[in-house]
């Protein structure tokens, strides 16, 4: 069993929003940040990151700006916008509700069977 988990559909956008909510990041930085905050449990396929970034930018949830990277190279930095912040809050709340519900449901099923 791999220690990395498969990404559920629809969660990539949420993770990107979370990643850039802390401070502006370039694309590669987003990748590293998600790896880091998920304790290496989530590995984003590099090919699907940029379409998601462009889509979010197109939707106005994140904005992009050119800047200097750590090693003084030109890089594009993404930051959360106000609608993005709102969306992140909604998605987080929604996710927590869903996770709690599914967790409860799965636990309850086990208890009932044993009892």
């Amino acid at each position: 069993m791999s220690k990395t988990a498969d990404l559920l559909p629809g969660t990539l956008d949420m993770l990107i929003l979370k990643a850039v909510s802390l401070n502006p990041l370039h694309g590669y930085g987003v990748l590293l940040r998600i790896k880091q905050i998920s304790n290496d449990a989530l590995d984003i396929p590099q090919g699907s990151l940029y379409p998601a970034l462009y889509r979010l930018e197109h939707q106005g949830l994140i904005k992009a700006e050119w800047g200097e990277s750590d090693n003084n190279r030109r890089a594009k930095f993404y930051a959360l916008t106000a609608p993005g912040r709102k969306r992140l809050k909604e998605e987080t709340a929604g996710w927590n509700r869903l996770a709690a519900a599914i967790g409860a449901a799965l636990n309850a099923t086990v208890d009932d069977t044993e009892a």
Binding site: H26, G27, Y28, Q46, Y50, W66, S69, N71, R73, R74, A75, K76
Partner: peptide, 16 residues
């Protein structure tokens, strides 16, 4: 141009 730059940067950062 921006798109090409961005992707090139990413690839190079990864290789580094």
């Amino acid at each position: 141009d921006g798109m090409a730059d961005e992707l090139r940067f990413h690839k190079e950062a990864y290789i580094d």
